[in-house]
Deep mutational scan, measured.
Amino acid sequence: MTVLPKDIPGDSLKVTVGTANGKPGDTVTVPVTFADVAKMKNVGTCNFYLGYDASLLEVVSVDAGPIVKNAAVNFSSSASNGTISFLFLDNTITDELITADGVFANIKFKLKSVTAKTTTPVTFKDGGAFGDGTMSKIASVTKTNGSVTIDP
């Protein structure tokens, strides 16, 4: 049996954390987006972790974005102690894959008090994996961190 590389060099799934701005007490939304989904033969499963400074940001909610089908079954998240974990699994293993680019999740943060303008990162942590529509590992994932700026 011969195994051929399935990824064209330079191609990767792009996962990007967005940015937001606000004043202390505001609730802002930071999107997590996927790009080049079709090039990577869709997404059938993924789990990953984001870190944030809990002294500056309070997670209000984490909701599935419009590219997630049947989110009540296929999407899960949790947030505590400065870490947000995400889990997606197409429970049907074929019919509810992520097949389009767009917003995977929206994180709502309540901004805490600061004395001066502060930009705090929302960054990928170690761990996690992504699988394509056949549940094979997506070897190349380009992750881009985001941030939230609090301006009193």
Rank of each mutant, 00 (worst) to 15 (best):
P24T: 11
T119W: 04
G18C: 14
A72W: 11
N74S: 03
T19I: 09
F104N: 01
N91I: 11
L57V: 10
V62R: 07
V122A: 05
F88S: 03
F88D: 01
D151L: 15
I84T: 05
I98Q: 02
A35L: 09
G82I: 15
I138L: 02
G146H: 05
T149P: 15
T144R: 07
T123W: 12
I8R: 09
T27F: 11
F88H: 00
L56S: 12
L56C: 10
T144G: 07
T27S: 13
S136L: 04
T92R: 02
P121G: 07
N81P: 15
A79W: 15
D26I: 13
A64M: 04
A20G: 09
I138D: 00
A116Q: 05
K6S: 13
F34L: 10
D7S: 11
D26G: 11
T2A: 13
T119P: 08
L87Q: 01
T29N: 14
S140T: 10
S80H: 09
S76R: 02
V62A: 11
T29A: 13
G127D: 04
T45I: 01
T142L: 08
F109S: 03
K117D: 05
D63K: 10
G102Y: 00
V32E: 06
G82K: 15
K23P: 10
G128F: 02
V73E: 14
S77I: 14
T16P: 12
F86V: 04
G131Y: 00
A20Q: 14
T149Q: 14
D132H: 02
S147W: 09
D132I: 01
K6V: 12
L13Q: 09
G22V: 13
K69E: 10
K125G: 01
T144K: 09
V122K: 00
K143D: 00
D126W: 15
L89E: 00
M135S: 01
A64P: 10
D11T: 11
G128P: 01
K110C: 04
L111S: 04
T29Y: 11
D132Y: 04
V114T: 07
I98H: 00
A105K: 01
T94C: 03
F48Y: 13
V103Q: 05
V59T: 08
L97D: 01
S140M: 09
V73C: 12
I67W: 04
I8Y: 10
A116N: 06
N21D: 11
A116K: 08
T120Y: 04
N106W: 01
D101C: 06
Y52C: 10
G10A: 11
K6N: 12
F109A: 01
N21A: 14
A116M: 05
Y52N: 09
A105E: 07
K137I: 03
S61C: 07
G102A: 03
M40C: 14
V37F: 09
V3T: 09
N91C: 15
T27D: 09
G10L: 13
G133D: 04
I8N: 11
A139N: 04
P66S: 12
N106A: 06
S12V: 11
F88N: 00
K69F: 11
G22C: 05
P24L: 12
E96I: 00
S77G: 09
V32A: 10
I107R: 01
D126N: 15
A71W: 04
L13D: 05
F104T: 03
S113L: 07
A100P: 05
L13C: 10
S55Y: 12
G65L: 09
V122H: 05
K117S: 05
V43A: 07
N74P: 01
N47F: 01
T92G: 03
K39V: 09
F86G: 03
K108V: 05
L111P: 05
K117N: 06
D151Y: 15
P24I: 13
T27K: 09
F88A: 01
V28N: 07
V43P: 01
K110V: 05
A116E: 07
K125R: 09
V62T: 12
P9A: 09
A71L: 07
D7Y: 11
K6I: 14
G131E: 00
D63M: 13
A35F: 13
D101P: 05
M135Y: 15
D101S: 14
N21G: 08
D36I: 07
G22K: 10
A100Y: 06
K23Y: 13
S147V: 06
G44S: 03
P121S: 08
V60L: 08
T115D: 07
L56A: 08
I67M: 09
K39H: 11
K108Q: 06
G51C: 08
T19E: 14
G10Q: 10
N81M: 15
S113F: 03
G146S: 04
T115L: 05
P31L: 11
L4I: 08
M135W: 01
V62K: 10
C46Q: 04
I138K: 01
G51Q: 11
G25N: 09
T2R: 08
V60A: 10
I98T: 15
N70R: 13
I84L: 14
K143M: 04
K108G: 04
S140K: 14
V148Q: 04
D90F: 02
V60K: 11
D126E: 14
D11G: 13
L89W: 03
D101V: 06
S12Q: 08
S147M: 06
F124P: 01
K117Y: 03
G102K: 01
D53F: 10
F109G: 00
S61D: 08
F124C: 03
K41D: 13
T119D: 05
N70V: 10
G65H: 11
N21P: 14
Y49S: 02
S12G: 12
I84R: 06
P66D: 13
I138T: 05
I98S: 03
A20H: 09
N47T: 01
P66C: 13
D36S: 11
V114L: 07
L87Y: 01
V43W: 02
P121D: 05
T142W: 15
L4N: 14
L87A: 00
N70S: 12
N91W: 03
K14P: 11
L87I: 06
V30G: 08
D90V: 05
F34K: 10
Y49L: 00
N42Q: 12
L111C: 06
G44P: 01
K110P: 01
I98E: 00
S61N: 09
T134A: 05
G65D: 10
G25F: 13
D63W: 11
A116I: 06
V73S: 05
F86H: 02
